[in-house]
Design a protein around this nucleic acid. Structure first.
Lengths: 264, 264
DNA sequence: TAGTGGTCTAGACCACTTC
DNA sequence: AAGTGGTCTAGACCACTAA
């Protein structure tokens, strides 16, 4: 016998999925269900909390509990790294990206801070630096229509970026072509990448920063960028609101029995 | 002013991260904190629930609330699809995979059912079939040491697999070489893939199936497998317990200004 | 059987939104 | 000011685990 709040939550979830309550529409008020004999206020509230934790609804005081809109997923494919965008284009890569996907860019949609910090062990390892070495950290918080969608912090070796405009702590994208253009101009052309993805629940702090509703996981992205000769020129850590993104990768199946250039 | 339960949860989370409570160790009992004046039982319980939802602890009745062990992440790189494994090898690919990663395979670690079903719209679209067409669905629930880790359901076009052992509803892997070997023997050699990833909270039903603790998201994987001439031979949907997996992709940056063979 | 977390109630009061 | 969800209490009782 499942608890009373679970049964109520399941019943409501079923109705949401059946379309009886549509995205944007309110669920019955808590007091209403209490009067209908669904249980005490705490019990009904527990059911509503469960639905919230499952990402189905969002509650707000004074307003009500409404069925969550499915934010359109943004698909992230490797085409977003197209060299033509940052090498030849006049627009900053991520703005071009938005133009292509029909989204608008507003001033203030990206804030960034640049600082010289002691590398985290993970960062030092990626760059092949000893523990405790210093790196430049360029942290961005990216928003869309004022809502934060993700953070992205890039770590660079000082000798790669010292004196470039990457190190200039002006808010906004790093000028024409973005960070990749700067590295390219400095003689370090991005040519290859490794992306690692994992998902988890945010810490309370992360939830606050990204204004995540309860029940929204985050995807942590660890990205290593190499030049053609294998030099690591950027290691970046991103934190994405899970409901806003999907990742897409195309690849040929490897064949270790035949491939000559087999990279571990 | 954050609510009392939030403050308590933050205090405990801080201690966990500081190592005062280590993985596997119990947190103070709820009644204990009530006596210490942290609030009423419901308030303290709310704090504990929050920690659980954040994936930090697991609670069990009669036992206590303990700090969650970090299950070792399994890294999924494209090497797991190595043709040599399923084409030439004597072992089923995923078993070879476990051998390579030092994990044991136990009989019963995979259950599968095969059935002919009406294709979901998504599946039909992937295979280029009209809505309502029939496909073979091969659903697996994969466990490790008795704990479910993920599900994977593959959909095939009937004309590709009819009469092969893929359609034989015997539990366990689809014989020597697995599903890819069967397709290969039938003249459809897997050559290219597209993988799409997204994360979300599980439904109550999925949480039950995968025995997920509260606060554990899932990663949904949509995989399309093609032959060298672009024929779709498998569309698969997987649901993975997020804390057990990380995905890893290597790729060359595209260059639309120079690439001749630019696939959309 | 003792001890743990979990459910549930009834009601007071708080914080925020909307009019 | 009225109405919403959220917090908090005090206490009874339930369900599961371990010795």
């Amino acid at each position: 016998m499942a608890p009373k709040w679970r049964e109520l939550a399941d019943k409501l979830a079923e109705r949401i999925n059946a379309g009886e309550y549509r995205p944007g529409q309110p669920l019955p008020q808590i007091r209403e269900l209490v009067e209908q004999g669904e249980g005490s206020k705490s019990t009904v509230l527990a059911a509503y909390k469960a639905l919230e934790a499952e990402g189905l609804v969002t509650a707000s005081r004074g307003h009500g509990t409404v069925v969550r809109e499915r934010a359109p997923l943004k698909r992230l494919g490797i085409a977003r790294y197209d060299k033509a965008k940052w090498r030849d284009g006049d627009e900053v890569a991520f703005i071009a990206d938005r133009v292509a996907s029909g989204r608008k860019y507003q001033r203030g949609d990206q804030t960034q801070t640049v600082s010289r910090v002691t590398a985290l062990p993970e960062v030092a390892a990626a760059h092949g630096l000893p523990e405790g070495a210093e790196v430049y950290a360029r942290a961005r918080l990216v928003k869309e229509d004022g809502q934060p969608t993700h953070t992205l912090t890039s770590y660079y070796r000082p000798e790669h970026v010292e004196g470039t405009r990457l190190v200039d702590p002006t808010p906004g994208p790093a000028g024409r072509g973005g960070g990749f253009r700067v590295l390219y101009d400095a003689g370090y052309e991005p040519d290859e990448m490794k992306e690692e993805l994992s998902a988890r629940m945010p810490t309370a702090e992360e939830a606050k920063l990204l204004k995540l509703p309860p029940g929204e996981p985050v995807v942590e992205l660890h990205r290593t960028t190499y030049t053609a000769d294998g030099t690591v020129i950027e290691y970046a850590i991103g934190l994405h609101a899970a409901s806003r993104f999907a990742w897409e990768y195309d690849f040929k199946l490897p064949d270790s029995a035949r491939d000559k250039e087999d990279r571990g």
